[in-house]
Design a protein around this nucleic acid. Structure first.
Lengths: 342, 342
DNA sequence: ATGAAAGCGCTAACAG
DNA sequence: CTGTTAGCGCTTTCAT
């Protein structure tokens, strides 16, 4: 695993009998090289197995074409899907993805050196939580930072997020229309802005509709938390018959927990989640969910981090919001409707 | 988004009133710097917000500390989990993960330039499929390549994989013990070595047990394929009562499909999958599955790509195999046993 | 169109 | 212990 094994442009130049600059030009879009020289260079390069080294380019231009993507918990199918779409989009834009796996926000400080060290062009964070300190530390790097579903704003730090307040309100509307009378909200981590906003929008809309306050169940985005919440829900008196869950994963857990307890959805409990993960459409679940329009969010994120026209916005830090789209499935369908489920 | 905004060691040196080398040494483990100089340097660095640039280091040493991880389809929870564990392990080993999203093996050729261009220290591929041509192209890069669950071997190209043949045989044994009489195998993509080996091991063991050949249903690792296979399974005459599925995702699809058709597991059909993804343990499924011991596979992979003692093996290319572990859950439990399911 | 030369930010070898 | 010097492989002037 020792170094010194790659062919350099100098090696190619020597074999081709041209100058090193000629080799460089051959690989530079729109540089002036005669067809003859070009051919000689390419032939030599092929013979030697030459591959241009991007590191010096990055060194000189301070543009590494590396974008750090920080994720926490890609075992959550929603984030896996987001990451996949990001990777595809960034690759198409000629960038490379440096994956930063982070367990909590505070660990981000620890990786700051690395993302700075590789001189990444930008950072995208799927971590909802981002402390003010971290945001400031990132600010100091003076590279565009975009948080997915975050709410924090600082110089160089922007957020692209679903309109969680609106989506919270939509949940209230929809659950009422589906026949709900007694409401509950299965929450996420208390410090998650997405969770806070979905809950706030939900509660606010219930209030506007002059409906009683929801029962709030604690959770943490996980299937297990949802499963555990079922016990509490079943024990509640009066028992809620309509639950908005902060995300699909915990909604699925709740649904399974309710089934264990002998309850059915939508007949006994109307249920919906957020993220519209693939499993929500599985025939065992058919869960109603809010779709985040991830492609649009990614488009906006890429604009902020790669588009020179957006440089000013990126430097200031902006908040962008994308409307949610309700995907109605069986768990909020008519009771006894032809939603087979399981 | 223009360059030239990072502080360099020269800037720090100037402010600290020392030479640039002194700054470099301050950041080099075990270099000789006096405490006084060190302090001056650190103070200046702090004042300026200096972060060492790794690019020149990589340039000089030909060790970028970048490891490319190629994945195709991280929406499959198994691969998401593998990626997460890889990222964590590599970060702990001081490496950065460059994520390469690939849709099919042939696209790998297209990214060859990029992984070579960034001078990655190694490549890990979770793509089961890897054509001989691609393997050779990778070989030419002379960097250690490890394929997860692959079978191809070439100079510099190794594989770390579950013992799929053995695990196939174990499936036959277990399904028979669980009371199966008529067997089926739900397969994956025909060109997947993992799929081939699991099926081969399964069929071979059935033969050894003097049991009839299994019905083979086509699939592609997806939930949808499993769901679709249910129809064919139900229509089969005689209908199999024990199915080994090439992975959990398609097993879950099959299970849901069977339920739709009014069949129950394990009573009507015994079922098992491979990968032991989280969802397999969900109370709606309780699917028996083979655990791949991913931590051990990752350990071996890291040894091959990072450990100097393994350099010879890596250069030659080796095949390493890790035994599978059967995790028994309800879908192969006793009929009518206290596995509540849903 | 091409070669020579400078320099990106760093490490390493070499004096002192 | 510390400063000077020479590169790493490339892009970019600047002459020619």
């Amino acid at each position: 695993m020792t170094g010194k094994r790659y062919v350099s442009s100098t090696d190619v130049a020597r074999l081709a009998g041209v100058s090193q600059s000629a080799v460089s030009r051959t690989y530079t879009e729109g540089a002036s090289v005669s067809p003859t020289t070009r051919e000689k260079v390419l032939a030599a390069a092929r013979a030697l197995g030459y591959r241009p080294n991007f590191l010096p380019q990055a060194l000189m231009s301070s543009r590494s074409h590396l974008v750090a993507v920080a994720v926490g918990g890609i075992t959550n199918p929603f984030y896996a899907s987001v990451l996949e779409q990001f990777a595809t989009a960034l690759q198409e834009a000629g960038q490379q993805v440096v994956l930063i796996q982070i367990d909590n926000d505070y660990a981000l400080d620890a990786v700051l050196d690395r993302i700075a060290g590789y001189r990444v062009d930008a950072l995208v964070s799927s971590l909802a939580v981002l402390s003010t300190e971290t945001a400031h530390a990132l600010s100091d790097l003076r590279i565009p930072v975009v948080c997915f579903n975050g709410r924090i704003r600082a110089a160089w730090v922007s957020c692209v997020s679903m309109d969680n307040l609106q989506a919270g309100a939509m949940a209230a509307d929809h659950l009422r229309e589906a026949g709900g009378r007694r409401f509950a909200f299965l929450g996420g981590p208390p410090d998650s802005p997405a969770s806070q906003d979905r809950q706030a929008g939900f509660e606010h809309q219930l209030q506007r509709l002059r409906l009683p306050k929801p029962l709030v169940l604690p959770g943490d985005f996980s299937y297990e938390a949802g499963h555990a919440a079922a016990t509490r829900l079943v024990a509640a008196d009066p028992r809620p018959d309509a639950v908005a869950c902060v995300n699909d994963l915990s909604a699925l857990g709740l649904l399974d927990g309710l089934r264990r307890a002998g309850l059915r959805s939508p007949d006994d409990v109307r249920l919906l989640g957020y993220d519209n993960i693939g499993i929500a459409a599985w025939s065992a679940y058919e869960l109603t969910s809010f779709d985040q329009n991830v492609p649009e969010m990614i488009r906006r994120t890429l604009r902020l981090i790669l588009d020179d026209n957006a440089a000013d916005e990126a430097r200031q830090g902006v908040l962008e919001t994308v409307p949610a789209r309700l995907v109605i499935r069986c768990t909020t369908g008519r009771a006894g409707a032809p939603c087979l489920g399981i």
